[in-house]
């Protein structure tokens, strides 16, 4: 299973990933129009300064996932390939997933009464957040690829 890995030491906090995510998850697919949209789209990756470094909070698609266990509607489920997929049609906004996600990677869409998290943009070759990261602080691939290509540097 491919997912997003964040490499702290490469990140300079430019937040291009947030912008790319926001655009991708907007109805208009245009960053200039997102402010006008109702309900307003939210980025599913958030970059924050933490001490002397930056940290990007994004769903890690855990294999023994707390949110899948806590979800009382069956909206959070594993896909056949192992990602944690969130079916927003089933979501009722009970925030049980937010109650248990130890990374804080799930946010609220209050207007829509739905939870929101990274869906890995499965219709793209590479998720726009990773593609937009000029410093390659976001790596999209399998854990094995991550180990081989990134962990050693």
């Amino acid at each position: 299973m491919q997912k997003l890995f964040f490499i702290t030491k490469r990140c300079d906090g430019c937040q291009a990933c947030e912008v790319a995510c926001l655009e991708k998850h907007s109805q208009s697919q245009s960053i200039f129009m997102t402010k006008m949209e109702q309900p307003s789209p939210q980025p599913r990756i958030k970059v924050k300064k933490s001490g002397s470094h930056y940290w990007a909070t994004v769903c890690q698609h855990c294999t023994d996932s707390m949110c899948v266990r806590a979800c009382m509607t069956g909206a959070m489920q594993y896909s056949l390939t192992g990602e944690v997929s969130h079916n927003t049609n089933k979501c009722v906004g009970c925030w049980m997933c937010i109650m248990v996600c130890p990374l804080g990677a799930i946010t609220t869409l209050n207007e829509a009464k739905k939870a929101s998290k990274c869906d890995l943009c499965k219709d793209e070759m590479t998720p726009p957040c990773a593609a937009s990261c000029s410093r390659q602080a976001l790596f999209y691939g399998t854990p094995e690829e991550y180990e081989m290509k990134v962990a050693g540097d």
């Binding site: 925030w95 996600c101 130890p102 990374l103 609220t108």
Partner: peptide, 13 residues
């Protein structure tokens, strides 16, 4: 504001 609640319940755990 309940966002991030899981970070705290994770610390409790």
């Amino acid at each position: 504001d309940i966002e991030g609640a899981g970070i705290l319940s994770g610390l409790i755990r």
